[in-house]
Design a protein around this nucleic acid. Sequence first.
DNA 1: GTACTATTTTGGACTGCGTCCAAAGTATGA
DNA 2: TCATACTTTGGACGCAGTCCAAAATAGTAC
Lengths: 156, 156
Amino acid sequence: MSTHATLLRSHGLSVTPQRLALLQTLSQYPHITADQATEAVRKSLGTISRQSVYNTLNALVEKGLARRIQPIDSPALFEDRVGDNHHHLICRSCGDVADVDCAVGFRPCLEASDDNGFIIDEADVTYWGECPKCQPKISNVHTTTKTKTKTRKAIS
Amino acid sequence: MSTHATLLRSHGLSVTPQRLALLQTLSQYPHITADQATEAVRKSLGTISRQSVYNTLNALVEKGLARRIQPIDSPALFEDRVGDNHHHLICRSCGDVADVDCAVGFRPCLEASDDNGFIIDEADVTYWGECPKCQPKISNVHTTTKTKTKTRKAIS
DNA sequence: GTACTATTTTGGACTGCGTCCAAAGTATGA
DNA sequence: TCATACTTTGGACGCAGTCCAAAATAGTAC
């Protein structure tokens, strides 16, 4: 019960019903927009302001308790799965997002080939393609907008 | 001169002064926002509507002649460097963006560990950190907002 | 338990990025 | 040269997110 409360306290955030409800909501969805979160919290609390949702989500991201991903053509998505260096598969057709573990091992993506002098602390990998539901039935030619080589089935 | 014109024609796009100016502009900046592009084009053409800028940029992305990247806390950035599977380093402090070649070899990032049934056609890697200019002078402790392990210098 | 203070929440206004739309203009192909 | 389809224009609009000041509430000290 107080898991979320202690989590908040241990990160220096005071405990409010709004924040608890948001943590609860985050734990129920793999990825969720601020608006969807607002709607979900309103079902349990009755009401919450949009500003509080953003305040809280941003605070959680600040403290490393949540992560924000920013797909093209979509509002930001929030997730509470953090610290495991996982990545995301996004469907170009329906926008569906799936988690995927890192391909190469433990946090390999922090090794850029040339860091240009940057001190890198995070790598963010997004795979773009088509989810099973959106794939054409006859999977030889499928119409997309890109010139590049397409239609790769991953091995594993 | 007609390089850009033929490029447009060969992709089924008609040739207009606005499009030529935008291609010219794209080739001059490694990464540019729609607004910056508008401003730049207005310096050469005198005028262009915002809608035309977006139309053209989107068309170029459609045809694979440009790429759009969508950093958090920034409007979309466009670049004309395409087809070489390069990635991006973004500075959390100043927002500066640098290109970086792929770490592991040729398009390795298309190999997700588990594709969840997706047909993957592109992988998008963003490294987050601090650029040389924004790094604190004494580089032991530096204040950021994250809990995770930080301050990794890449090897190569 | 009460009182005080700092933090949080609220909601209304506002900004920025991007799109929609219909009318006018222009490139292309016959 | 003409006709048509595409492009450009600019004004309205929508959505995601932030700003702000006032009200409410959590944490702290007594």
